[in-house]
Structure formats: structure tokens, C-alpha cells
């Protein structure tokens, strides 16, 4: 039986950071059955929260307080996404919400 995990992608400055570290930019990360928040997962990967504006969970932008569950598809988006997409995709809202709220899984 496969161990519970999420697939994590890193974009932009986070991609560059991971490359500097010599690590992969697409990772499989094991999670506890109850999941972890985006902020906690970032901590597990040693990604500075100050660099992250939002986290995609199954292709929808969530704030870093969102609970990520095993089997989810995850991507961390750094600060600085250009275009109106910061609004249209919800990145602006996610960045403002930060890690303080939303502890429920999608």
C-alpha cells in the first residue's frame, strides 16, 4: 500500500530557491492522515513563509492556513504573481488571509 503523500510543485522564486539547494522542484511529501496546513508543509520543506503568497490545493488557490490532505495536488506560489490573476485566481485574497484562518480541508 502506498504511503500517504502529497505532490508538491514550486514556482517562481521558490523554484529558484529549490534549484539553488540542489533539490527537485516537484516533490512527493508524506503527510500524517489528518493532513497539515500549507504553512506547516512549507515548514517541512524549509520554505520561508515570507516568500509565499498562496498555495494551490487541487488547482484552487488557498491561504496558507488551509488543511492539505494526503493525495492532494499542491503547489506553492511565491509573492509577486503579475497580472489581474492575483485577483481573478484568489492569490491576493489568500495572501491577505495568510496562515491565521481556515483549518478545514477542501
Amino acid at each position: 500500500m502506498d504511503r500517504p503523500a502529497v505532490t508538491v510543485r514550486l514556482f517562481g522564486a521558490l523554484y529558484a530557491l529549490q534549484k539553488e539547494r540542489g533539490g527537485p522542484t516537484v516533490l512527493e511529501v508524506e503527510l500524517p492522515p489528518e493532513g497539515v496546513t500549507g504553512a506547516e508543509l512549507a515548514g517541512m520543506l524549509d520554505l520561508p513563509l515570507s516568500m509565499i503568497e498562496g498555495v494551490f490545493c487541487n488547482r484552487t488557490v488557498r491561504p496558507l492556513g488551509h488543511q492539505l490532505m494526503p493525495g492532494d495536488r499542491v503547489a506553492f506560489v511565491p509573492e509577486g504573481t503579475p497580472g489581474p490573476h492575483r485577483f481573478f485566481l484568489g492569490l491576493y485574497a489568500a495572501g491577505k488571509e495568510g496562515v491565521e484562518t481556515e483549518k478545514t480541508p477542501s
Partner: peptide, 20 residues
Amino acid sequence: SQALPTFGTNVLANIINEAG
């Protein structure tokens, strides 16, 4: 000061793709 100067406008490709 960060995303655009480093990656150009095409920094959006992965993000829009991830959004489906």
C-alpha cells in the same frame, strides 16, 4: 521587483496551468 525581473511575464505559465 522580484517575479517580473527574474522570470519575465512568462512566470505566469506554471501558475495559470496549475489553476487549470
